[in-house]
């Protein structure tokens, strides 16, 4: 019973959007869009569960003084400060969460502009560094396939910057061709296979034979 009820719910929740895709009847679409709304609500509550977990885990870390506990202090402080200003701002406290009408920053906006934004930008910018080290390691002409990959990579890299066009206009043109034809053909091949795989997985979940995501070893 403990397993049957969730599987029955899974079946219903999975079938309703599929039926709604083909049946425009008002009642069916209402049920389907209501399910969408439920998903948003459930996700909201799950986020609350996540926050509780973060607080519990990190409080325990600090209490037990496990390795790296100062990081937990920073994390909880960040959560408390940003959370307080955000929560209060949503109800109009501290002038809201965006810029005030006179152009001055609210505390939330100030933190967003001066802490959140540069930290986010820094993390994303790390990609450039990691991409450089990874491509230095990966692009070696070890065999024919690797050589083709290397040549394509060099053409695309050259074609995407103005220097390429300064050398010859064929660089950007060849780049576009590589991106739009061989790259796209390969991507579509993977996407079609992955799409069918996803549909098959979804079907297995809906009809209840795929249960390994529930941690159960046996499919039946």
């Amino acid at each position: 019973m403990r397993k049957q009820v969730p599987l029955l719910l899974t079946f219903c929740a999975g079938m309703i959007p599929i039926v709604a895709l083909f049946v425009p009847e008002r009642h069916v679409s209402t049920v389907s869009t209501t399910l969408d709304s439920w998903l948003i609500i459930v996700a909201g509550f799950a986020l609350l569960l996540g926050v509780v977990n973060v607080v519990q885990m990190n409080t325990n870390k600090i209490r037990r003084k496990t390795s790296g506990w100062p990081y937990a202090v920073v994390l909880l402080a960040g959560l408390a400060i940003m959370g307080t200003f955000g929560f209060a701002g949503a109800f109009g406290g501290f002038g809201g969460i965006a810029t005030r009408l006179d152009g001055t920053s609210t505390p939330f906006d100030w933190l967003y502009q001066n802490a959140f934004l540069p930290l986010q930008g820094t993390m994303f910018a790390l990609l450039a560094f990691f991409m450089a080290s990874a491509s230095y390691r990966a692009f070696r002409a070890r065999n024919v396939e690797a050589t083709i990959l290397l040549i394509a990579a060099l053409i695309v890299m050259f074609g995407r910057i103005p220097f390429g066009e300064m050398v010859t206009k064929w660089f950007p043109l060849t780049t576009e061709w590589i991106m739009a034809k061989p790259n796209m053909a390969a991507q579509r091949g993977i996407m079609i296979g992955a799409g069918l795989g996803a549909a098959s997985m979804a079907l297995r979940v809906i009809v209840g034979i795929e249960r390994s995501y529930l941690g159960l070893g046996k499919g039946e």
Binding site: L203, Y213, E220
Partner: peptide, 25 residues
């Protein structure tokens, strides 16, 4: 890569019904 990810549960469990679904796919 792609579909190998979705085939993993069937591959790892060797459950005939899951493998069957891959053949159908």
């Amino acid at each position: 890569i792609g579909e190998e990810l979705y085939a993993a549960s069937a591959y790892l469990s060797r459950e005939p019904v899951l493998l069957g679904s891959i053949k159908g796919q």
